[in-house]
Design a protein around this nucleic acid. Structure first.
Lengths: 217, 217
DNA sequence: CTGAAATGCAAGTAGTTACTTGCTTACATC
DNA sequence: GATGTAAGCAAGTAACTACTTGCATTTCAG
């Protein structure tokens, strides 16, 4: 058995292994679990099919490991601790989220399609949006505490609504491009609408600027 | 050849055919194209596997026909021609949309997962939301024209945001229940937020009631 | 130089898939 | 009662699936 041996031979230590994992991820996101055949993965990785089994034992193990290796991706644009320009800040953050969702839409769609049949394999899909939700909620609370928004809005509903709009845009634009705003304006529009709903848009803030300081306080 | 013969024998004329179509749809929504094996469909339909091929010739034809047979489903709650109580009306409509999305979430998810590999098979998924979008846009315009909302909002962005929130709720709640509002309040919350963004919530309307009649006019 | 480890290649196994063929049974109308 | 049609059943085909085995080749470490 060739287990527990981290001192391989070839130039980059785990080159073959990484190539297989990458190819597996790619095949899975394109064709789903059933469509990600070991033959297809081997070809894409430029590796003999048996090498896959020698490394991972089974297709299930391989794909499980590949999917578990994702989350260590990259952390995204953070929302500032002290909000100054909500419109600009939230728009930039939304743009970033949208870019991430668009880039991973193939994988996200596949995971969604398989979540009922293989729930354990698709956990990975939840970690990023969960983190984004938490981050967004914190920012909205800070907005309120800074007197830059109404005092009585529900930050969770607000956060989930914005994220829903971004998610729907990333998933549905290819299928129904007519119903979405132009790509370059989309993030700004969604975040703008949400800010208007909580009284954190420029107009509302200006109107309340010289009053109590916080609208609806 | 047994084609072009609409005068069958058994009690309900197309009973077998319909059973196969229903089973095919069910299997597809649960397991996707590759997972919807003819054997599985035959078992679910209580029919011999060969009967499937005698009726439809091939699996592709069967699933194509099954998916094309969906849209003649049911039309949904319509938004009133003359808005009276936006909060109640939009909330009820959202509830209805949400119920529909939740009911079909398995099929929707599968279609999303297969849209890249088999785009022609998943057209069906777009017709319902397209119609809903159009209906919602029309209602929002009527709201504006009736002086029940701001005059300067973008009804398309507003519509797509609300629909995005509903879509995200229906698709994501199982995976991340913590981030969504309680099921029974969700539709009301999303529609309420959106109405606040366009000045059509009860508070804003009351504030502008005795002024020009239309906020931000 | 030697040996072990990583990989490739050829071949094979057993299960599954879509789909076919041939024959039989049941019903239903004429 | 004859005819035809829909359906079942048994069996088989060719392709593909995950996975295995045995053997040869490369490569690098000691």
């Amino acid at each position: 058995m060739n287990r527990e041996n981290d001192l391989q031979s070839a130039a980059p230590p785990h080159a073959t292994r990484e190539a297989i994992l990458a190819a597996a991820l790619d095949a899975y996101s394109k064709f789903g679990f059933r469509g990600a055949t070991t033959r297809r993965i081997a070809e894409a990785a430029g590796v003999n099919e048996v090498t896959i089994f020698r490394h991972f034992g089974s297709k299930d193990t391989l794909l499980g490991e590949a999917l578990r290796s994702i989350p260590a991706d990259e952390l995204h644009t953070r929302l500032p601790e002290e909000p100054r320009d909500p419109a600009a800040e939230l728009s930039a953050w939304s743009e970033d989220q949208l870019a991430h969702l668009r880039g991973k839409r193939s994988m996200i769609r596949t995971c969604m399609g398989e979540i009922e049949e293989r729930p354990e394999m698709t956990d990975c899909a939840a970690t990023v949006p969960r983190a984004a939700f938490a981050e967004l909620c914190r920012y909205l609370v800070r907005l309120r505490e800074a007197g830059m928004a109404f005092t009585d809005f529900d930050e969770r509903v607000t956060a989930v609504t914005l994220m829903g709009a971004l998610f729907s845009d990333a998933m549905g634009r290819e299928m129904m491009p007519e119903i979405y705003p132009p790509t370059d304006r989309a993030a700004r529009e969604y975040s703008g609408l949400v800010l208007r709903a909580i009284g954190a848009d420029d107009n509302t803030r200006a109107a309340f600027a010289d009053a109590t300081g916080a609208p609806r306080g």
